[in-house]
């Protein structure tokens, strides 16, 4: 019974996010901020549904709802939406929605696929761990910050291409603001990701499997992901590389994050599966 309620709330959130995204696009297209206010309200409504869904599900399962891809994606989307709302409020600019909401929409679309199991199943012994909870929660919070950096990095690249005085140039935040936001987001995401994904992941692996590191593809990709963001921090130190180069790395970094999340499971394991 419970399960139906939370699954429906998640579907509801998915629909809200989709509608909101379309409205943000329309508002961008029509060059009017008024529409975006509606988009914002619908998004908020979706977020509330999703949070209630997560609470119901967590209560029913007696565990933080992050134990399978369905729950994780809902948690992840909710954190991205919260970060997005903060950025939008802070910078009082409606364009961010056009670049960040598609990410949320795709994540939710994936979680809503019929092939994604939505059942609450009790945890196998390896998953019964508080380290795992912190590992997943912090990884996703860090990755949500990376999603923001992805959005602002993309905006930087678009803004840079736009001619001075043209439509995008007028409504986008300026390049310096975007560059700073990208940096700030990664400066927040990087330590959280380091602690959650790498350190707590290693601690959990030590407790559950005896070894803190075993170079399995998921671990390896998380490390690669981490190195990409370390590159981001350093490329900024090199004179003249700030700006376009760092924006590109922020974009590539998030693509790496997504590959770590999905690609490893669906592509690499596919490669390994015949072995």
């Amino acid at each position: 019974m419970n399960q139906l309620i939370d699954v429906n709330l998640f579907y509801g959130a998915f629909i809200c996010y989709g509608v909101s995204m379309v409205i943000y696009f329309l508002s961008f297209w029509k060059r009017t901020g008024k529409l975006a206010v509606a988009g914002n309200m619908i998004l908020l409504f979706g977020l509330i549904m999703q949070i209630i869904g997560l609470v119901i599900r967590g209560t029913a399962a007696q565990f933080m709802p992050i134990t399978n891809i369905y729950e994780s994606l809902n948690f992840f989307s909710a954190v991205i939406v919260i970060f997005f709302l903060f950025v939008e409020w802070k910078f009082a600019n409606r364009v961010f929605g056009v670049f960040i909401l598609p990410v949320v929409f795709l994540l939710m679309a994936f979680s809503s696929l019929p092939s994604t199991s939505k059942e609450i199943v009790p945890l196998i012994p390896a998953l019964q761990s508080q380290w795992l909870v912190w590992h997943v929660v912090l990884s996703f919070i860090g990755e949500a910050a990376f999603a923001v950096a992805f959005g602002s990095g993309l905006m930087y690249l678009f803004r840079e291409k736009a001619k001075e005085g043209s439509f995008p140039a007028r409504i986008f935040p300026d390049l310096k603001t975007l560059d700073t936001l990208t940096y700030r987001a990664i400066a927040i995401g990087f330590p959280i990701f380091t602690l959650g994904a790498l350190i707590f992941g290693a601690v959990w692996a030590k407790y559950a499997w005896g070894d803190y590191w075993s170079w399995d593809p998921k671990e390896t990709w998380a490390l690669i992901n981490w190195i990409v963001y370390a590159l981001f921090l350093h490329v900024r130190v090199i004179r003249g590389w700030r700006g376009r180069a760092t924006a590109w790395i922020a974009v590539i970094g998030f693509l790496t994050t997504m590959f770590t999340l999905f690609g490893v499971n669906y592509l690499l394991s596919g490669l390994h599966s015949y072995a």
Binding site: W221, I224, L271
Partner: peptide, 14 residues
Amino acid sequence: VLVAIIFVAVIGTI
């Protein structure tokens, strides 16, 4: 060097 490390690490996952 870090880019090269990434490169080999990726190969190891493929």
